[in-house]
Amino acid sequence: MRFLIMNGAGNRFAVFDAQDTPGFTLGTEKVKAICQPGSPVMGERGADQLVILRQPKSPDADIFMEIWNREGFEVDACGNATRTTAWLYMRDNDVDACIVQTNDTLLHCRLAGDMKVAVDMGPPKLDWTQIPLKEAMHTHHIDVKLGPIDNPVLSNPGAVSMGNPHCVFFVEDFTTVKPERAGPMIEFHPLFPEQANVGFAKVEARDRIRLKVWERGVGMTLACGTGACAAVVAAVRQKRTDRKVDVEVDGGLLQIEWRDADDHVIMTGPVELESEGVV
């Protein structure tokens, strides 16, 4: 079986190509063992997610992407993994566009330059039932705070689903707020029955955001594609930015556009193939 190590803006993946091996499975404990930092498979950095490529379930798709996080449970979306999967399919089949299927949706992808892919992530899900939240509320600002009640360190985040739940806080800097400390507390907040990815966004201009993300089941990562999309959607809804924004993450730069015409979010960013072999 073909095995690859890939990353999207630093978000690192162990990729098993099971398109010709339909019975291939790993399970929670094997996924955790492969992804953990220092594993013999992934080395010191480990993997943020594990991806299994399969034949598509829909006749409209070209390839199916199964996604597992470092904690060993399956998730429905990963923007950076979508770019790497799409790039791999397009390279292998000598095409410049494809459709990647996930458990959540079909994602239209195209080449956008050398080692760069654009993905139509579809419209964001903004109703409280779609994210989901435990209680009914408007999701422009949700009632989640961290710190003293009368003077919270974090408050008024936006909630967005890009196929997975996101809670996005807007911060002035990353010294007062420590994402690696705040992230796990918000991830398991009782308002999020499926846990949450937690974004910490610093708006530097109407067209630029600096972003750090605590991913549920993973921890701090160098990049989070769905997190970048969610941050821009939340920023636009709170009138902090325009609809086309460069999002700087620790691993690189992502271009996010929330189109007004059709409500779709377009994510464009880099892909890197670290190694390719057979297991």
Results as ranks from 00 to 15, higher is better:
residue 249 V to E: 09
residue 4 L to T: 14
residue 195 Q to F: 01
residue 143 D to W: 11
residue 13 F to E: 00
residue 95 V to N: 01
residue 247 V to T: 07
residue 198 V to C: 11
residue 127 D to A: 10
residue 85 T to C: 10
residue 266 I to D: 13
residue 108 H to V: 11
residue 132 P to H: 04
residue 220 M to C: 03
residue 87 W to K: 11
residue 106 L to R: 12
residue 270 P to W: 07
residue 18 A to E: 00
residue 180 E to K: 05
residue 213 V to Q: 06
residue 211 L to A: 12
residue 42 M to L: 14
residue 177 V to D: 04
residue 183 G to E: 08
residue 63 I to C: 00
residue 55 Q to G: 01
residue 264 H to N: 15
residue 160 V to G: 03
residue 260 D to A: 07
residue 279 V to R: 10
residue 147 G to N: 13
residue 55 Q to E: 07
residue 222 L to M: 14
residue 38 G to A: 11
residue 207 D to Y: 10
residue 241 T to Y: 05
residue 197 N to A: 02
residue 276 E to M: 15
residue 238 Q to D: 04
residue 95 V to Y: 01
residue 47 A to G: 08
residue 75 V to P: 00
residue 48 D to N: 03
residue 46 G to M: 14
residue 145 K to N: 06
residue 184 P to N: 03
residue 148 P to R: 14
residue 117 V to W: 11
residue 94 D to S: 10
residue 3 F to Q: 08
residue 70 R to N: 08
residue 146 L to F: 15
residue 187 E to N: 13
residue 45 R to V: 00
residue 93 N to F: 02
residue 20 D to C: 01
residue 177 V to C: 09
residue 197 N to M: 05
residue 238 Q to A: 08
residue 81 A to C: 08
residue 92 D to S: 00
residue 168 V to N: 11
residue 261 A to M: 06
residue 89 Y to C: 00
residue 48 D to Y: 08
residue 118 A to K: 14
residue 68 W to R: 01
residue 51 V to C: 09
residue 105 T to V: 03
residue 177 V to I: 14
residue 6 M to T: 15
residue 17 D to G: 05
residue 92 D to H: 00
residue 73 F to D: 09
residue 80 N to E: 05
residue 75 V to Y: 00
residue 264 H to F: 03
residue 84 T to Y: 02
residue 98 C to A: 08
residue 141 H to V: 13
residue 17 D to T: 03
residue 247 V to L: 08
residue 224 C to H: 06
residue 28 T to W: 04
residue 193 P to D: 12
residue 271 V to G: 06
residue 38 G to W: 11
residue 2 R to K: 14
residue 268 T to L: 05
residue 245 V to H: 10
residue 164 N to F: 11
residue 16 F to R: 04
residue 235 A to G: 04
residue 183 G to Y: 05
residue 198 V to I: 12
residue 10 G to P: 00
residue 103 N to R: 15
residue 162 M to C: 12
residue 126 L to G: 05
residue 124 P to Y: 05
residue 2 R to I: 10
residue 232 V to L: 10
residue 216 R to K: 03
residue 277 G to I: 14
residue 174 F to M: 12
residue 35 C to H: 06
residue 86 A to C: 04
residue 94 D to Y: 06
residue 257 E to S: 07
residue 136 A to G: 05
residue 137 M to P: 02
residue 110 R to Q: 14
residue 190 P to V: 05
residue 112 A to I: 08
residue 121 M to F: 06
residue 255 Q to L: 06
residue 228 A to V: 10
residue 137 M to A: 14
residue 23 G to K: 08
residue 108 H to S: 15
residue 60 D to P: 02
residue 250 D to R: 10
residue 8 G to T: 05
residue 174 F to T: 04
residue 267 M to S: 13
residue 25 T to P: 01
residue 262 D to C: 02
residue 93 N to V: 00
residue 244 K to T: 12
residue 9 A to E: 01
residue 175 T to S: 11
residue 208 R to C: 13
residue 136 A to V: 01
residue 154 L to A: 08
residue 104 D to L: 12
residue 258 W to V: 03
residue 270 P to G: 10
residue 147 G to H: 12
residue 182 A to P: 12
residue 195 Q to E: 06
residue 138 H to F: 10
residue 67 I to L: 09
residue 256 I to A: 10
residue 106 L to D: 06
residue 277 G to P: 13
residue 20 D to R: 09
residue 117 V to Q: 09
residue 127 D to I: 02
residue 77 A to V: 12
residue 174 F to L: 13
residue 49 Q to D: 02
residue 163 G to R: 11
residue 181 R to S: 06
residue 135 E to W: 07
residue 139 T to C: 13
